[in-house]
Amino acid sequence: MPPSPAPAPVAIGITVFRPTPEQVATLRARVAAEARPTIVFDNGGLPASVAAHLTACGARVLSAGDNIGVGGALDAIARAATAAGAAQVLLLDQDAVFTPAQVSELEAAMARLRALSQPPAVVGPRPEAAPGRKAPAYPRRPEIPDFGSLVPVAFLATSGSLIDLQAYARIGPFRSDFFIDGVDLEWCFRAWAKGYGCWMETRTALPHHVGGGVIRWQLLGIEMPRQPPFRMAAYLRNSVYAWRLPHVPRAWRLRQAAYLPLQALLYWADSGYRPRVLAQLAGAVLDGLRGRLGRPKGLPR
């Protein structure tokens, strides 16, 4: 079998929304240190002076003039990377601290995965918890063996994920109607269903900063990020809606059917059992059952 041709350059895609001064400083340093083409999507709140500085440093800054959600921003980045001639795009959020050397590690991992019969869709780093936060957990695919340091997983968070753009074109775009939560999970389930693999490179790691702390139910061993109500509502809504999608595995649906009520109860308890929060969570579940997606209710402008 002849070797695959060398891939085109990797593009870097970064989504931002109301970045803090510290996140702006990280973004500036990221663009300055990266020789690869960089695309920044502003979902709102990026100062015009910062956008101008990033552009002067060689980055391409995109905006729809409104918050179109994570899914819409990632699709815009993927389209721009493809138009720029990139074969792969490394997706990052504004909190991510991921060095150019780590990007190269994922690029090398993607190249190794091309030796497999099942083409790779995405490879990402091992998740770690930033101080006071909870790292996401990636369930492994037990029917597929590890490939050296690479572990097949059901899904990965988009931040830190290196996406193969040819695979992306065949799998389809991220679900913009999910807006924020579950976008990565649904896309990876769809990738597996279409014959592509999702892999975690265990030799490199990325700390995750999701939420504003951790909510714990020690008796049941449950931990979840502490999120604002609109985020928790979007998570519930999208999870319930995903049960109807044929590419979402039955085992995952059953797990979520048991787990989501416990998470909702834990979140409500953490809110002080406020009736308004309970009504918002119940409304989110109803929206998921009825297929009412899009911009979450209560999303800050």
Rank of each mutant, 00 (worst) to 15 (best):
P5M: 14
I14R: 00
F17L: 12
T20Q: 08
P21H: 08
L27I: 03
F41L: 03
D42G: 03
G44L: 00
L46Y: 06
L46E: 03
A51N: 04
A51I: 06
A52N: 08
A52G: 07
C57Y: 01
A59W: 04
R60Y: 10
V61L: 07
L62R: 03
V70A: 12
G71S: 01
L74V: 08
R79E: 14
R79V: 13
T82E: 00
T82M: 01
A84F: 04
A87Q: 06
F98G: 00
F98H: 02
T99Q: 06
P100W: 01
S104I: 10
L116N: 05
Q118K: 07
V122S: 13
P125A: 02
A129R: 02
Y138L: 10
L150D: 05
V153D: 10
A157W: 01
T158R: 15
T158N: 15
S159D: 12
I163S: 04
A167K: 02
I171V: 12
G172A: 02
R175E: 15
F179V: 03
F179E: 01
E186F: 01
F189T: 10
A191T: 14
G197W: 14
G197A: 15
T202G: 13
A205G: 15
P207N: 13
P207Q: 13
H209N: 06
I215N: 02
R216G: 01
R216S: 06
R216Q: 05
W217N: 13
L220E: 09
F230T: 09
M232Y: 12
A233F: 11
A234N: 15
N238W: 06
Y241D: 11
W243Q: 13
L245N: 04
L245G: 07
P246V: 03
R250I: 04
R253A: 08
Q256Y: 04
Q256K: 08
A257T: 05
Y259K: 14
L266K: 11
Y267H: 02
A269T: 09
D270V: 10
A282K: 07
A282F: 08
G283N: 04
G283C: 04
V285Y: 07
L289Y: 01
R290N: 00
L293M: 03
G294H: 03
P296V: 12
P296L: 07
L299S: 02
R301G: 12
R301I: 12
